[in-house]
Every structure is written in structure tokens, then in C-alpha cells.
Design a protein around this nucleic acid. Sequence first.
DNA 1: AAATATATTGCAATTTTTTGCAGTTTTTTT
DNA 2: AAAAAAACTGCAAAAAATTGCAATATATTT
Lengths: 249, 249
Amino acid sequence: MKKKDRQQKVVDEVSINRQVSSSFLSEKLNVSEDTIRRDIKELDKKGLLTKVHGGAISTMQKLYHYNEDVIYKREEKVLIAKKAITLVEDGMVIIMSGGTTNLMLAKLLPKNLKATIYTYSLPIAMQLAEHPTVETIFIGGRIQRNSMVTTGIDVIQYLSNITANLCFIGVSGFSLEQGITGEGYEVALVKKAMISSSERNVYLSTSNKLNIRLNYDICSLKEIDIAITDLDVQDPILKPYVDAGVMLI
Amino acid sequence: MKKKDRQQKVVDEVSINRQVSSSFLSEKLNVSEDTIRRDIKELDKKGLLTKVHGGAISTMQKLYHYNEDVIYKREEKVLIAKKAITLVEDGMVIIMSGGTTNLMLAKLLPKNLKATIYTYSLPIAMQLAEHPTVETIFIGGRIQRNSMVTTGIDVIQYLSNITANLCFIGVSGFSLEQGITGEGYEVALVKKAMISSSERNVYLSTSNKLNIRLNYDICSLKEIDIAITDLDVQDPILKPYVDAGVMLI
DNA sequence: AAATATATTGCAATTTTTTGCAGTTTTTTT
DNA sequence: AAAAAAACTGCAAAAAATTGCAATATATTT
């Protein structure tokens, strides 16, 4: 039997029986216990069952598998996320916009962090839902297909009733002339509303977004509380921004 | 170079250049054009780039991969979804609860269907967001970790402002004595609100949920507009339900 | 603490997947 | 319509992954 078919049967058996042992599966599927142990290890990693001593138990299955490997400039985003985490404290109310840098931040939050996080992005919410102690609140509204976020007056109105301690904005365009800019008009409106509803705003920008001007204004240079990039603060590329008064990490 | 690493570079090159040719990648990565063509074909299928004649172009990347293969009783859910689709018409306002049967329904909706669909489930919303012509509205609120749905007074209040033509409810327990029942109190409350906000309610139940009574009432037998199972309507297992007056497909 | 059960690691044999190529088909360009 | 470019299929060789086993380590039971 093919590995894939066998693993399917492993998952089915665990769904039916709630708990199975490696030796039971080994006999049932006619392969060695070591093969079953490897299967269980791999399926646990994929979130399809939970490995326990001697076998596996049923789990809330993760229907979606997070293709993190293919995120463009993944290492840079990990670096930015780690810098951003230093600003997060227990008890905070946080707003998060969308994008893959924020997704990485959501993934890397400390597993004991107790905070409330508002977001309008489906992938961010999916990721935050896996966090054991963060309370995730999704801002409802019409889903914009390409960006997987909600937009519209419902979102902006909802945001006007919140005051967040901290807000993380994923950045698409960042330039000296224009400050933070973005691509979609409706997303720009929502990001502006997020910014207005927060005490402190943090802009997450990979270096390839620097010196890029897009079509819609989000925030001027002077209004930036903190900006985080993957570059070292002493990097010459950042010097004009530092000289212009931007608080950079 | 390993296949996985090579494909990572393919995705990166497409992200950088927006458009690349097979011959360009073949030279750059030092493999044959046929290998690149196979890579591009596979990555397009995964939603990480778009294959075009002569090469590939950048696309909005699907960060999440949908593990459909491992859905328990997948074929039965496909059957139920196909039955449910016959009730759907252009111009309808629809409400969808959560669960893997509804997920299958969301996936199999006709690609030219023009409807508005409300949902409180993150996976359902992710799936619907891929539909080219369906308008998806997410009902915001606090995310419940295990079930990946929103619950709370916000959701119920929002639902009270809607009248949907049709509502699809995923079923966990279905019995003669108790009708439709569920596991979580908060989810049961929301499902009740969904039912109240809809002209017609359709209950999607795999056969393994029949003759199961769970802790929280959702809907009595008499109140069921339509129930869909994977069984043939003439199946003896369904006879008591038919005799009790349940409208079954 | 000792015995038993389970898990992990390294390795060789086996199985499966991937690759490059040739021939053919399809699509695009001239 | 014809020529050129690109795509697809089948196949054999090469590469990679998987499997079962033995030895060792760790966890659980007695």
C-alpha cells in the first residue's frame, strides 16, 4: 500500500476510535511499528492527530496547512516579528492588519501571552486561533477576495468603538516623500481607521518596500510612532529615514 | 539541488520578476526546461504562481493549503453537498454555519453562482473567498479556538438584522427524540439565531450523526424544513424520520 | 530499583519519485 | 498556411524517500 493511502487510513482509524496504539495499527495495516511511528509523527506535525505515548489520539483536525516555507523574504519577516514582539505585553489590546509579516508575528507570539487581538484578516485570525491564551476578535464585514480581509463601513465603524494599546500595520509602500502608502483604496481606509483607534502604531516593513510609493496614502512620515524593518538601524539605507525623525527599530 | 529548494527559488524568482520564462529559470537553476515546466505545473496547482504559455507570472499566493484528502467521510460529504447545491439559486442571500460538510458545499458551489453568503466560520470564509462571483460576508466577533467560528452577542445581534433566503446548518447530532442537537452551548445559540434569520433551513447530516443526541438543543424535528443525508431517501435507516414527517433529500 | 514497553537513531535494502531525453502534439508567431 | 516555439507523454536512468531491523535510550509499570 502507498504511504499516502496508509496515512489516510491511520487518520480514519483515529477518527473512528478516538485513540489507537501503534501496535494495533501496525497489525491492522500490515506494516512495522516503526513505520506507524513515523506516520504518527508526521501526521501530528501536520495537525491531523495528536501523538501520545504508545499511539495517537483524535484531535481537532487542522483542515488548512500553512505554507510558510514559500513566504517571500521569510527570514526577514521572522526578524521583524521578533523585534515587534519586544513591544507586546500581557493585558494589551492589540490591532493587527493583514499581510505575511503580520502573519509571521501572529505565529511567533509567546505561547503564554495574554492579550486581546483584533484583526480583519482571515489568515491572521486562523493563525491566532491556534494560540492557547490570546483572545482573538474578528472584525466582520465583506471579504475582499484577493487580500482575504474585510473592508467597508462596518469595519471602520466597529474600529471607531475601540481604543487599542498597540497596532501593527503591515506595510506595502514606505518612502520619504509620502510616508506609508498602500495599494487598495478600501484597505487604505481601514488601515487609517486602525491607526486612529490605537494609542501607538507600529509599521512592519521589509526592506524591499522602502523607497516605494504606492497609490493611496495611509500615514505621513511624521505620524509614524515606530517603524520596524529587517535592516540594522545603522544601515545606510535607513539613514535618510532616521534623519527625517522616524523612530526605527 | 533538492526539488523542494529549487521550487522555493522558482517561487522567489516569480515574486521578484513578476513574470519569468521556463528557459530563463532553466538556465538560472541549471536544470532542464522540462523539470521547470513540471515545477511550474505543480506550483500553479498549489496556488503559489500562475502558469502561462512559456513560463509563469506572479499571483496572490495561497498561504494555506486545504487538506481535503483527510476529511473523515469525505465522499459522503461530497454527496450531501451536491444535493444541497440543487437548492441554491442566483441572487439568493445564504447563511452557512461551520463544519466540514459545509466546507465541501462551499468548495463545490458552481463557479458562476451569484449569491451573497454570510458565515461565521473561518475555514468556510477562506474557501468562499476563492469563489469568483460569490460575495462573502463574515460575521465578526470573538473567535472560538476549537471550532474556528465566532460566537457571542455580537454575532447573534448581527444575525437578527438579516433575513436569508436559505440557511445551511452543519449537524453534529440528529435524533427522533430531540431533533437537531449540538455540542457547544455558544455555538448552539448562534445556530438558533441563524435559523431564526432564515426563510428556509437546510440541515446537512452525514449518516454517522443519525440517532445521536448531544447536549444542546438546536431545532426540533417538526421545525426542520429540509434535511440532507448521504443516504438514499428509501434507506430503512431513514424510514422513522420520514414517518415522523421530516422532509428529506 | 528493576523490569518491561515504547521511542529514537543509524544503516542497508527496497520502493518510489524525479529527471532528462526523444518523439509527438499543440499553440503561437510570422 | 507554414514555421517556430512550447507543451506533453512515455521511458529508462538516477536520485530520493521509505521501510524494516538492530542497537541504544527513554518512559512507564511493577
